[in-house]
């Protein structure tokens, strides 16, 4: 079977057997996805809550510790995630219009952004911090006399825990987007409408929202 890049060749607008019609099916999926995103909000809520509790307890130390992060790198990553969020919204837009080429291009750009986000995070934040011994555990090294080492370790625990979980979500996003792109590209019969793109898009926007709150909290506010 020849695969065209300009036309979607799979069966379109299929209604699964448990649903009555397409409209019902689509809204059910959206509600289900949002119910899942509620769990994601509570999931990250715990990380944010722990952060708030400890920053409130150790305010001066935490303010000083935040100087460890470079707002420029965080800012670049913020912008990258905003762009990727935009391009996912665009991918849904094009998928709704059944424009295969544009959908794939937007999803590809999103994946590129996500990859760039992780690379920047690794190269400019995680690896330098690791090399300085700034990671929680027995190998933790700390030479700032103004901040107790254990508080610094707690702060790094929160930083690595929160951004690590966020990074994990980005990684999952990359994998899922790659699968989706492949399935769209080869006209996989499971992609019967734009909903898979929309569902993944909702997930990705959520990842962006987490970063929208994470960035000012960790990189900006204490200044």
């Amino acid at each position: 079977m020849a695969i065209s890049l300009n036309k979607m060749n799979q069966p379109q607008d299929v209604v699964y057997e448990q649903f009555e019609d397409l409209a019902q099916q689509q809204e059910t999926y959206v509600i289900g996805m949002w119910a899942f995103l509620v769990t994601e909000v509570m999931f990250f809520g715990v990380m944010f809550m722990s952060y708030v509790v400890y920053r409130w307890k150790y305010q001066p130390y935490f303010y000083a510790l935040h100087q460890e992060l470079d707002w420029r790198i965080g800012g670049i990553n913020t912008f990258i995630l905003l762009l990727s969020s935009f391009s996912v919204a665009l991918a849904v837009h094009f998928h709704q219009k059944k424009k295969k080429m544009q959908t794939l291009a937007c999803l590809g750009f999103t994946n590129l952004c996500a990859l760039a986000f992780l690379v920047i995070k690794m190269l400019f934040e995680y690896i330098p911090k690791w090399n300085h011994g700034h990671y929680p555990g027995p190998g933790f090294t700390w030479d700032n006399p103004n901040i107790p080492g254990n508080i610094a370790q707690l702060w790094y625990s929160l930083y690595f825990g929160t951004t690590g979980l966020h990074g994990l979500h980005v990684l999952i996003g990359i994998i899922l987007f790659s699968v989706l792109m492949f399935m769209i590209a080869v006209d996989h019969p499971a992609i019967t409408d734009y909903l898979p793109t929309e569902m993944l898009g909702l997930y990705w926007h959520f990842v962006d929202i987490v970063w929208i709150f994470l960035y000012p909290l960790y990189y900006l506010m204490p200044k």
Binding site: M42, F43, G45, Y54, N150, Q153, L154, S157, G161
Partner: peptide
């Protein structure tokens, strides 16, 4: 459920990777 899931996961992190958010040794509560 997500709240307890992540909380238990943080204990796993603490046991495996020493990410000690609840560790009193680090000033955690």
């Amino acid at each position: 459920t997500p709240v307890v899931a992540i909380t238990l996961l943080l204990v796993v992190f603490e046991r495996v990777a020493k990410i000690g958010i609840f560790s009193p040794e680090l000033g955690g509560d």
